[in-house]
Nucleic acid binder design. Structure first.
Lengths: 214, 214
DNA sequence: TAGATTGTTAATCGATTAACAATC
DNA sequence: TAGATTGTTAATCGATTAACAATC
């Protein structure tokens, strides 16, 4: 695999291919062409083949396309879906609770194991997920071997909580706080700023830039 | 302004500059250099100047840098923050309610005017925002002159609701449903897929790709 | 003035696309 | 076999960065 070209964009496409493959499989399909996969997520067939090749997936059959089962296995293995991916939610307000109850996560392979809050008496509406006090984070993260956290805290708490999260040994953060956190040497941050997304949307609409977004 | 280079990435950076400028202003600063702005959001000074220039903002002063007030006015005008930006939330489950109560939106210039749901008897925890039945969408959107919607519906309803949203006259959609919607000729879609973001995060962490994300 | 910073142009970098040999 | 599709290489495209003239 050509690691230098692997970036968030190509990874998200790979995840997307996986979703499409599951759907095709559910519909009873057995084979798929790069052309079909491209159509399904709105990219070119060349892009699909280039992506798969980049991740070292070359199970395609000239003329015959790809076996869905085989391709799915390869993609799942590449994305690490062979093992269960644990994640914690830090900040159990409305947004944190919404994510803890989010139905869009794939059933297999991804699991929210705990929530954390300054006020842990608030109970997850999803009773299966325990909520702890922030200062128990290091213990739980270590015990459960969690490496990824979702941060849904208010802006005012974000910087301080990010320190805590890093000290707990978390290696990757999906940050929903409206504050751009910077990746450090040991912890990777992916910022999702809803206000920013919305603002860019207003602009695009205002100037009728109805071309597809990247 | 050089519209052909305007894309979501540069727009989000512009929004980011605005946030930084507000913070600097609050701290009592009067002047700022492209170098400072770049540091603040983690891009180069050249990128900052290139962005501003692209949006037709050339209020900089050689040697003196930029006046924060003047630059802020220019950025706000470019982003259309001179007028109030109305938005509706379609799907008032946990995620929809979390967004209706989201504290990260700038106080000025951005306002959620209504929520919509198949079951409109559920009341917004934020009492200021009324919740209507889906079939009232066209009327409200027209009366309130809304152009942008946030979609927080289950995957199973997404395609159908997207049709409804388009028929109501919405021109831009921020989609949180775990299903990639495609932009049409008249309606621009920005997909935010939390599961996808999380999955790419797992991968990056797994291979210790702790380089900053794009 | 001398030093420093902008705005813009040219150079670089990286990602997407087109083309095509290999081959089922 | 002939036609079609992969995997990869080369060409293209676009975005970022470096460089620098203009100038405060």
């Amino acid at each position: 695999m050509d690691a230098k070209n692997v970036n968030r964009t190509s990874l998200k496409r790979l995840s997307n291919y996986k979703n499409v493959l599951y759907k095709l499989k559910a519909l009873g399909f057995v084979k798929v062409f790069s052309d079909n996969l491209g159509d399904a997520i709105g990219v070119s067939a060349a892009q699909v083949r280039s992506d798969l090749s980049k991740f070292g997936i070359t199970s395609g059959n000239k003329k015959g396309g790809y076996s869905i089962d085989e391709l799915l296995d390869n993609v799942k293995e590449t994305l690490g879906k062979d093992e269960i991916q644990k994640v914690i939610v830090v900040g159990c307000g409305k947004m944190g609770n919404a994510i803890m109850n989010y139905s869009g996560f794939p059933v297999e392979g991804m699991r929210i194991v705990a929530g954390f809050d300054t006020n842990p008496t608030m109970v997850s509406s999803n009773e299966r997920i325990p909520i702890y006090c922030l200062d128990e984070m290091e213990r739980i993260v270590s015990e459960e071997k969690v490496r990824v956290a979702i941060m849904t805290v208010p802006e005012s708490a974000a910087a301080q909580v990010f320190d805590l999260v890093q000290r707990a040994g978390i290696k990757g953060v999906l940050n929903f706080a409206p504050l751009q956190l910077r990746s450090t040497e040991t912890c990777l941050v992916n910022n999702i700023n809803i206000a920013l997304e919305l603002e860019s949307m207003f602009y695009m609409v205002k100037y009728s830039l109805t071309r597809p977004l990247s």
